[in-house]
Nucleic acid binder design. Sequence first.
DNA 1: TCACCTATCACCTTTGAATGGA
DNA 2: ATCCATTCAAAGGTGATAGGTG
Length: 437
Amino acid sequence: MYHPRELYPSLGPSYRLGPPQPGADSSFAPALAESYRYPDLDPPKLDCFLSGIEAAPRTLAAPPPLPPLPPALGAEPPPPAPPEALHSLPGVILSLENRDLWKEFNSVGTEMIITKAGRRMFPACRVSVTGLDPEARYLFLLDVVPVDGARYRWQGRRWEPSGKAEPRLPDRVYIHPDSPATGAHWMRQPVSFHRVKLTNSTLDPHGHLILHSMHKYQPRIHLVRAAQLCSQHWGGVASFRFPETTFISVTAYQNPRITQLKIAANPFAKGFRENGRNCKRERDARVKRKLRGPEPVATGAYGSGDAPGGPCDSTLSGDVRESDPEQAPASREAAPAPAPPCGGPSAEAYLLHPAAFHGAPGHLPTRTPSFPEAADSGRPAPYSAAFLELQPGPAGSGYPAAAPPASFAPHFLQGGPFPLPYPGPGAYLDVGSKPMY
DNA sequence: TCACCTATCACCTTTGAATGGA
DNA sequence: ATCCATTCAAAGGTGATAGGTG
């Protein structure tokens, strides 16, 4: 995955968004009635999409307060709260499909591994949506924002703040591979973001979401009405976040209970379950065999059921989920989806080529030699993802100071048309108007 | 010394191509 | 020729662990 910056060096080191272009597309209904301002600790990444749009912003009479931060994860689960939503898409409702799983993790204090190469989230955000116009097309986006300005530390039994957060990292947005798709498509089945990857590599070339380790984050899901990825104008935005999806990013699990939960719930970690060959008992046995020197391979040593010794301590007894609901949508999503409504490029093509978000023509190759994925793998990745890297807010780098209650950054504003996230040359904006490769 | 990060490992699931039968 | 089910291998995801770094 190439970052747009690498694809379009001529555009400079970043993509600053320009004001909406004249000659607004009237393919969408006129501006919805309300503009929204929203209190947020995070300067909205998508604001840069919307700069210059807010002709007459209005604030909500009673902006919803942010949920109080628990003093430490793991001590007490935060009280259940409805998902917070920013709506300029009336009637659109998003619900977290795997809420129970998230709640289970949240009650312990969710941790997400981040690695240089990128690590998937588990649990992943999986949502179902209702209230969309079945005919209209939408984009699903996901981003992750810091919850506060603190760094955290595992103190043996709980997470506690320990100092100030690291400077803000580049904001990136994950675009769901099916985007854009019709409302009917999105409502047909749950929408899973299980392919999102998190990294701590600030120079990450793959477009993964960049996080600091030992910081607390909150995923957000955005729904954007747009005729196509390459549409010049967007027709409304709704943003959602679910309090139970808050997590702390780590490079190695700190809370053993989280490790147990992950092993129990994640099918990829099946090998670490009690009956797996990679459980602690087996690993210890392998180490002993190694120390003693080569031995004939014992047949039937695994899963015989009569192996000596107690249960492995790396598993969560009685909580093994053989059919993991988390992975169920994967197969559904991998199943042939309706052709992307953009006509030419498939969703995958968009995702392999972030530039396609500008409106790449349909004859894009699915992969170019310049892609690192192609170099080390002769097999095409079944899916990748598209990301947008956005300009930091006006505050620049560094965490925003705790926003005063009365100060609301303009968030998702209705009143389109929305400019493309990448202003680029006009040729980038129209499908087929100019080949980019 | 400590906290944190990274590379590597073995095991597992997922994925898609190949194959064969209906 | 088409469809479907099965098989297989490669890719990729997982936590554990040892060693490195500041």
